[in-house]
Design a binder for these strands. Structure first.
Lengths: 213, 213
DNA sequence: TAGGATTTTTACGGCCCTGTAAAAAATTCC
DNA sequence: GGAATTTTTTACAGGGCCGTAAAAATCCTA
């Protein structure tokens, strides 16, 4: 394995363990077993290392989603596949995702930060389209702001970077099942709802505001 | 307004704008209009300031949820109220939440970090109980791991710290409505589902694994 | 308005991290 | 096995931020 790759691997581990902002180049060098300055032979800064870790992972994520959207699966299965595409990246072998998502603002170089931001914007945009298309086909409920739905789903998935522990937590498959059920059909049991007053299509109104309606 | 409070307010703003780890005590002092060292008269470190900002906000969040759980609302309304309790903290006037959630690992002092972690653990635990009780009452679907459901909802809400822009984004009420609908009833239109093959209670099986069943 | 308490500033020492450049070591290739 | 290339180390200069302690300024209050 080339030294360059080795550095990226070790760096990922250290970033994941200590957090990016509390990791110096020396920490990475120690993990590899070389002097700090040797790192500069391969990368020009810590931000550079970080980008090399995150960017491929992010673009692959986007491409995966793109393929799903372009498939001819029904909307509901696209939704499931899209969530899986995202969750699979938290696979024990891939720490990149946790590193990429746990913190923010770590790229001091604005042009690099912009590049990464662009990828994520595209990803969010694709998700929004997936929702919109489902609505247009009459599969998903109309009236829900697609962008916000996308934000919600992404939040659900991305937040895993804060609590998911590859060794200890539930297997990814199980999480996928739960998240998909939640988003697609909700956690309220329709059987129970049927026997009660009436299942409102819209949620109960806000209690604080809205004097009228 | 006491200088102490003033420092906390400005610090919150700067933290929110630049991110915690890229903010020095000097930055805060500049925002207040005093010399860096004067800060030490009121706080012993940056971590101290941070904790004073986050801890009250977090405990108030927990207490709000506690009150909702102890109320005698039906489970579904508890769920909505709990989401609202959380989302309301992203109110334009309160930047604490974004600061608290945007990054991680910022407390170098382990005892302080543990204190904060404890509060959040309690919060997650309460959420889990809310879900469990709903299941026990037959309102929520059985079989979904309550802890994971809680993680999902919290992720959805917490991730707002990454994209919600008080001035620009949709009003909180609207987001609440969408998020609640998603979690409670899902985004799949039941009307459409009725006319199709058959609405499966469980999500379609994973396509990769599971050779049997 | 003088004396005491509070608040802010000046002065200073120290640690850690960054990044460049040149020398040394290791390797690869005839 | 010796020269050329690649890789690693040594040497060094600089900057940023931290936190303490003592002095100065400001604010009360009697």
């Amino acid at each position: 394995m080339s030294r360059r790759i080795q550095i990226l691997r070790r760096a990922t581990e250290v970033f994941e363990r200590q957090g990016v902002n509390r990791t110096s180049i020396e920490d990475i060098a120690n993990a590899v077993g070389i002097k700090r300055e040797a790192i500069y032979y391969y990368f020009k800064s810590r931000a550079d290392i970080l980008l090399k870790i995150i960017l491929p992972q992010s673009t692959s994520l986007v491409m995966g989603l793109g393929a799903i959207i372009n498939s001819n699966l029904p909307a509901e299965q696209k939704l499931e596949a899209a969530i899986r595409n995202h969750l699979d990246r938290f696979n024990p072998n891939y720490l990149e995702m946790t590193v990429a998502l746990r913190e923010d603002h770590f790229l001091e170089d604005e042009s690099k930060a912009a590049e990464l931001r662009g990828v994520w914007n595209e990803y969010t945009h694709l998700w929004t389209r997936l929702i919109e298309e489902g609505q247009e086909h009459g599969i998903f409920k109309p009236g829900l702001d697609a962008r916000m739905v996308a934000n919600g789903i992404l939040g659900m998935c991305n937040w895993m970077s804060r609590w998911y522990d590859p060794g200890k937590s539930i297997p990814i498959d199980k999480i996928l099942e739960i998240f998909f059920t939640m988003v697609a059909h909700g956690i309220v049991d329709p059987a129970a709802a049927a026997s009660r007053p009436a299942a409102p299509k819209k949620p109960a109104r806000a209690r604080k505001a809205a004097p009228k309606d």
